[in-house]
Write a protein that binds this DNA or RNA. Sequence first.
DNA 1: GTAGGGTTAG
Length: 652
Amino acid sequence: MTAASKIENLSVGSLRFLSRNPDFFASVTKPPAPASFYSTVSAQIEDQQKRFEYHNVATCIATLQRCAQRNDAVSGQQVHGFMVRKGFLDDSPRAVTSLVNMYAKCGLMRHAISVTGGSEDHERDVFGYNAIISGFVINGSPLDAMETYREMRAKGIFPDKYTFPSLLKGSHVMEASDVTKIHGLAFKLGFDSDCYVGSALVNSYLKFRLMEDAQKVFDEMPERDDSVLWNALVIGYSQNFRFEDALKVFVKMREEGVSLTRHTVTGVLSAFTVLADLDNGRSIHGLAVKTGSDSDIVVSNALIDMYGKSKCLEEAISIFEAMDERERDLFTWNSVLCVHDYCGDHDGALALFQKMLRSGRIRPDLVTLTTVLPTCGRLAALQQGREIHGYMIVNGLLNRNNSNDEFINNSLMDMYAKCGDLRDAQTVFDSMRSKDSASWNIMINGYGVQSCGELAWDMFSTMCKAGVKPDEITFVGLLQACNHSGFVSQGRKFLEEMERVYKIVPTSDHYTCVIDMLGRAGKLEEAYELAVAMPVEDSPVVWRSILSSCRLHGNTELAQVAGKRLYELEPEHCGGYVLMSNLYVEAGRYEQVSELRDAMRQQNVKKTPGSSWIEIKNDLHVFFTDDKTHPEYESILACLSPLTHHIMSICH
DNA sequence: GTAGGGTTAG
């Protein structure tokens, strides 16, 4: 039993008794602990007690603050006993407040409550209420804080300027009208011009997206030289996706000479991260270096995120490498893992994950695992994915009734589906108590890519019956499923119903799926007509798809049209040239082939050879076209040939 | 009194 839980096990009643009978405090047992630890702590406490004999209320308060910082309820309790004996609590509301804060910060709210009265003979004053309200908010019970505030108001006790910031910190569980009411009272009492109250009000309004109210509070502040006030506005606009306003505030802040803090830097960086605005992100990095805030761990994490989301993996890595290994926190690791995955370095992401585990400093949490699972999926690393699943079970990260359930299970399902293990994906899916649209989408897509069109289709019907609204992604999966299974008329029907029945406007992705489906099925004219007539802009993907269908069905005329458009859209990309070249080779038009090769040389287009690979017992085996270098080449071929023949016999 | 990380398609 830990010292803190031992104290928590004393009932509130017994503590009240202790407060009134100071001598009894002396008999409270010392914390149980291993001998070496015990002797050190006990020596420290005795030492402190000796010093207290000569000390006053002020030193007690200072000690309590240290106890709170160190989460050391045991020493705090010793100080408590001493203060009771000396009668320090009787005439110093500040002393009571420090004591309450100490218990609250150590997570012992029941003790905090008992110290500040609550009994009939010992009424709580505004200081006591402030401490309790703040304690509830610190300990994640903002509703209790609100209740305490109402009780205080009902007793006719007026809040002071310290009440509002604490109370408003829990405003995310309130109604917007509560904030307005609190604001009204702060105004009446004249506290709304206090900069702490002001920034708390700005923050609360921003949480409810009431930007104009927040801006008004800010504009009416008599003194605006406080960074926190500005930071609140910058961060608020940023989080509400009003990046231009965030930047305007930031620029104005600079003009007015308000000093930047690490909070300003992270706030404004998050705007540039979402916008993937590398140039401005870099400027902020420069500013962070100038002001010295780049050494802050949160700033470093935000920089990793910014560079990564701008696809500058190397710069993200250099920030990560420059950090002190002991500073790197969970956020750092999660950011750097996510960024590797985002930039397509899936191998790097898995290697880093292994490094994180080996370092032993930071334990992966659910965010880490939900980041790494899709990476496993993309690499088809089923074994690693399974190990992570096992880790989650062993560490009790699953089966918890938390709000992240869908997130985690969706990542697991996706990993299994991408690795081709649809049975396990389905098992996870079936075990989920609540499913969101992503859960259904993952299964629909999973069945779709495995050419299990009917199963994908069934999933879709069940999803609709379960009352989950399909979204854009659902239809991408569904149309893909039709494509892979050759359900041409059904695919066409879904595209038409999307807008008419489900009120979802098809995007270029949806058209691309259908065009690809039509092309593969040999309906080249129809595919071409749709590409020309569709109400969205055409993309290289569309024409590459048509081009490869032309090759499949030997249509050189349409191929030339598609090839021309593809060249207009992306002259530097090799895909179009390769497709055209193969097509000309098959048609025996070797003159055009050499023309194409010249064009490629002129444009400096290079073709990276495609490869496939498989991982067996931690060994990676890679294969290129016409590559006979594998030591087991002969036996692989012996297995492969009958399979190829079998597939061909089914297809024809 | 203020700040940072995660799932589904293409």
